[in-house]
């Protein structure tokens, strides 16, 4: 049995030091992915001419090409074609690449969430003299949010783990730090296991927060049941 448990534990503070950069990249990418994803969903749902066709190509690109290659194209490829882009720093590049890619996925989540709310509800709102904005804000969007939360959280957790790709373009994160450590001691299993456990704990915490959020948006439905 060739496993240095002591060493694995000793890596914890060194690796956890890079948790902020992981959360920073993951969270910022996720938030902008939500914004872009919503925009994409609206454009697709309404089939806005020109934008709609362009967007289909963009989405197909982001869904079809592996994340690592997208980061490469974005960080190395674009500056090669447009030298002015070489000033983009690595963290910005990762955030933009991750958010656009995931926006493409999330747009489908939001689109299906919108479709899941029956059109009749909107028509009913209008029939009781609500304005369109009122209908959207008080009736449609709360339901859309409720439907979109579980799959969106999935993407958040995935994005947190995708940040480990950033080391390819020089962002030292938890995974990178573990690799650098293990390179000196050659204890790769210990180092990778430690990172794995940390990522696992993060995702468990996120799942917990997700369930809290779900409970919050479920509230109106629970009251209904109690009556």
């Amino acid at each position: 049995m060739n496993f240095d448990f002591q060493y694995m534990i000793s890596l914890f503070p060194k690796i956890i030091e890079f948790l902020p950069i992981v959360l920073y990249i993951g969270t910022l990418s996720f938030l902008s992915a939500i914004v872009f994803g919503m925009i994409f969903a609206v454009i697709i749902n309404n089939k806005i001419p020109v934008l709609y066709q362009v967007l289909l190509v963009i989405i197909s690109y982001f869904r079809g090409i592996p994340t690592l290659i997208q980061i490469f194209i974005f960080y190395f490829g674009l500056p090669q074609l447009f030298p002015s882009l070489s000033s983009i720093n690595a963290v910005t590049a990762v955030i933009i690449a991750l958010s656009l890619r995931n926006a493409a996925y999330l747009s489908e989540v939001f689109r299906s969430a919108f479709l899941a709310v029956d059109k009749g509800q909107y028509e009913a709102c209008i029939s009781v003299n609500m304005t369109k904005w009122q209908a959207l804000r008080t009736v449609i969007l709360p339901q859309v949010t409720r439907i979109a939360i579980p799959p969106s959280s999935n993407y958040y957790i995935m994005m947190i783990k995708d940040t480990s790709l950033a080391f390819t373009i020089g962002v030292v994160d938890m995974m990178a730090r573990a690799k650098l450590e293990a390179a000196v001691t050659f204890k790769f299993l210990e180092a990778y296991l430690m990172v794995g456990i940390i990522y696992w704990v993060i995702s468990v915490i996120l799942q917990f927060l997700q369930s809290k959020l779900e409970a919050y948006v479920e509230k109106p439905y629970k009251k209904e049941a109690a009556k």
């Binding site: 960080y75 080391f167 390819t168 373009i169 020089g170 962002v171 990178a176 650098l180």
Partner: peptide, 10 residues
């Protein structure tokens, strides 16, 4: 520091 595959690109 970066993944070796990205070094020459940088």
């Amino acid at each position: 520091f970066a993944e070796f595959s990205g070094i020459f690109g940088m």
